[in-house]
Design a protein around this nucleic acid. Structure first.
Length: 425
RNA sequence: GGUGGGUUACUCAAGUGGCCAACGAGGGCGGACUGUAAAUCCGCCGGCUUACGCCUUCGAUGGUUCGAAUCCAUCACCCACCA
């Protein structure tokens, strides 16, 4: 199976500017390709993984990937997929964000591969020095307003109430200029991106054809959705980030374990490097016996290892085994200590547990599991609270030193899978 | 600039003097079933309180009234039509 056939089998092709020609070109030898990442936040999230992983798939097949951090485009704001104008980031925020995501982009690609090492660039390097007048003469002249206005990203905003500023309207020119610059300086022939980037990518291929008279291709992959069609990568706590300080490896792993059955097959194909026989084997195992969730766990293991590494994965697996293994019997202090760092942990002065102890409702609020004492009481009465993995339904329950595990910890749980640890000091 | 309509809890959206902490839907959280899934069913969703109840909330500010989300005035923002 060729690379492009594999990508299509994985469902990673939404659209291609000329699939037949690209297929021919890829067969002839290594292609240089790029994918851009705008620094809209101080971390990438699981949605961004698709671009990074696809670059990596090309690299593994011998091609030359470039990850481009959007130091310039991030200053403008991409209107694609956005229903309203966004606030501009300050230069300080941008610099901070670029530094943060640059580190993350370094993880998934191989920058030392013999023959085709990955490269990391920042489009501010070639965009910032260009003067406004030069840009209008050298770039703007090649763009038809009619075509620009017809792009979905612009059209949707023109039709809606929010409108669009001249600044965001100009975004497609900047991205087109990136592609043009890379085509000219490093023979980059292909740009990949999510399907919402189609308009920006074709702006680039059109510009290259007009200005350079050479070929360039665009390839988009479908945006990931959940089974109910809502946005992928959001949880109660917000986005699932790649930064372990924002989303712990444990939560990251759990996010994938909790994938709906109907999506496991798709996610295995799109988020892992497992080969086709292995994925089909996992699908068969799951179909035969869905209870153990083997496919979900394989998915979660693979993605967690890719993003956080083997050591973090091991710790996460250990914590998950304990927390979802049922009883805490037989768990030693050393093993328990390992899970403390994996799930949200709050400190508590041990003196507060002496005598009558501390109301469990107060402890639930302190741990962050419940937003208020009233809610904590309702959760308790509803049977959704567990102390040291034992259901506790008395709203007036007090917690004393006698409840401590290993004389030091308390394990609180709300519902089936939300845990918190109290660490006494 | 003129005239009319609007601003309600996470979102949408009822409510036009007391029965309103405020219908309903979505969404969220819990429970049952199951498999840390989906679907379904049940409960809860401003705060404090064991409870009676108390406190804060319906764009902002002031007023009328025993009593206001509901009436009046002023202000702010949004929408529609006219100029």
């Amino acid at each position: 199976m060729t690379l492009l056939e594999d990508l299509q089998w994985r469902g990673l092709l939404a659209d291609c500017t000329d699939l037949a020609a690209l297929t021919k070109r890829v067969a002839e030898g290594p292609v240089t390709l790029y994918c851009g990442f705008d620094p809209t936040g101080d971390s990438l999230h699981v949605g961004h993984l698709m671009g990074q992983l696809t670059l990596r798939r090309f690299q593994l097949a011998g091609h030359r990937p470039i990850a481009v951090a959007g130091g310039a485009t991030g200053m403008i704001g991409d209107p694609s997929g956005k229903s309203a104008e966004r606030n501009l980031l300050t230069p300080e925020q941008l610099a901070h964000n670029v530094a943060a995501i640059t580190g993350q982009l370094n993880q998934l690609l191989d920058f030392h591969a013999a023959g085709n090492p990955a490269r990391l660039m920042n489009n501010a390097d070639w965009t910032a020095p260009v003067s406004y007048l030069d840009f209008l003469r050298e770039v703007g002249k090649y763009f038809s307003l009619n075509v620009m206005l017809a792009k979905d990203s612009v059209k949707n905003r023109m039709e809606g109430e929010a409108g669009i500023s001249y600044t965001e309207f100009s975004y497609q020119l900047l991205q087109a200029y990136d592609f043009f610059h890379l085509r000219q300086t490093v023979q980059c022939e292909l740009q990949i991106g999510g399907s919402d980037q189609w308009g920006n990518i074709t702006a680039g291929t059109d510009f290259i054809r007009k200005k350079l008279g050479t070929s360039a291709w665009g390839w988009t992959f479908p945006l990931i959705t959940k089974a109910d069609g809502t946005k992928f990568g959001k949880t109660e706590g917000g986005a699932v980030w790649l930064d372990p300080k924002k989303t712990s490896p444990y939560r990251f792993y759990q996010f994938f374990v909790n994938t709906e059955d109907g999506k496991v097959s798709e996610y295995l194909r799109k988020f892992t490097f497992l080969d086709r026989p292995r994925i089909e084997e996992l699908e068969a195992v799951h179909a035969a016996n869905p209870g153990p969730r083997e496919a979900h766990k394989a998915l979660a293991r693979e993605v967690t290892r890719l993003v956080h590494g083997q050591a973090a994965l091991d710790a996460t697996l250990k914590a998950s085994e304990i927390l979802f293994g049922g009883s805490l019997d037989g768990v030693t202090e050393d093993i328990f200590k390992d899970i403390v760092g994996e799930i949200p942990t709050k400190g508590l002065e041990r003196s507060r547990l002496v005598g009558p102890g501390l109301a469990l409702t107060d402890l639930l609020v302190h741990s962050g599991l419940c937003p208020s004492k009233g809610q904590a009481r309702k959760d308790l009465e509803g049977g959704g609270i567990y102390l040291n993995n034992v259901r506790t339904a008395e709203a007036t329950r007090a917690v004393t030193a006698g409840d401590l595990l290993f004389g030091k910890y308390l394990l609180l749980r709300k519902g089936k899978r939300t845990y918190a640890v109290i660490n006494t000091v």
